[in-house]
Nucleic acid binder design. Sequence first.
DNA 1: ATTTTAATTGCAAAGCCTTGCAATCACCCC
DNA 2: GGGGTGATTGCAAGGCTTTGCAATTAAAAT
Lengths: 140, 140
Amino acid sequence: MKKTSDIINKLSEQGYRLTPQRMMVLDAIENSEHHISAEEIYAQVIMEYPHLNISTVYRTLELLHRLGLVTETDLGGGRVRYHPADKGHHHHLVCQECGRVIDLDESVTDNLKQVLKRDYNFTPDIRHLALFGTCADCKR
Amino acid sequence: MKKTSDIINKLSEQGYRLTPQRMMVLDAIENSEHHISAEEIYAQVIMEYPHLNISTVYRTLELLHRLGLVTETDLGGGRVRYHPADKGHHHHLVCQECGRVIDLDESVTDNLKQVLKRDYNFTPDIRHLALFGTCADCKR
DNA sequence: ATTTTAATTGCAAAGCCTTGCAATCACCCC
DNA sequence: GGGGTGATTGCAAGGCTTTGCAATTAAAAT
Ligand SMILES: [Mn+2]
Ligand SMILES: [Mn+2]
Ligand SMILES: [Zn+2]
Ligand SMILES: [Zn+2]
């Protein structure tokens, strides 16, 4: 798989060690169909590497997020979820009534980003937003 | 103070009990200069009511937020902060480099809300947004 | 290949927040 | 004012995530 090598190269270039733990956490994220949680990554990796500690998963996620290699979002449900950045950026609407999650194109935030840039010279890091509210079906 | 009575009336009207714990938590929020955290509310109330448990603070905050009487936001720093809804809605930009917090008028999200309404018939509950990024000074 | 060195890990403890449950208490009715 | 009732509380335990520290190990230097 090409994507994983790309991320591995970026880690290596920036002076981070390529530990087996990091490789396996990365693999779990890249091969996940949906947004994956720390606990789910842990459960998956531990099957072939039982020595792994969950704090290493959290630290790896923090690193990959800080380097912009994964996006992080709280879709409700009490745990943060992750997504490979190179699989495309997008956002979500989450209905507080029924729990439905609607996917949004990245472009919905273009106007907001532009206004913040123009009026405040602020560069927002909006890569994976989750907005809560009420969906069409639940609006009585 | 008029504001507190208003909130108390709303609680009462909706059938919620006016317990001393709720009154005191409410007081702490209303009299706070800035966005206040659960721990800070707890520390303040406990001075005159040492029996209070912090889970009551969290449950009261959850109730007030659900009823739209306080807004809730994560400005970073690992704890959620609260603000009375009747003191005016607004949003924040948080610089990830220097920690600076910029206040935004509620209207910056008007366009986004409108688009979500028009294209998805979704009514977002965006009352106190915190957006992270890089401020003007930190941009090299 | 061996040594060196700092980054990384596992472990245990802690921090923030939520939740189940039994005891308490605000409010309604008389 | 004195019950009755269900909402609310305190307490203790648990869930998710972070953090300090000593031991390990990837990678660089020899
Ligand atoms: Mn996503
Ligand atoms: Mn605010
Ligand atoms: Zn819905
Ligand atoms: Zn800054």
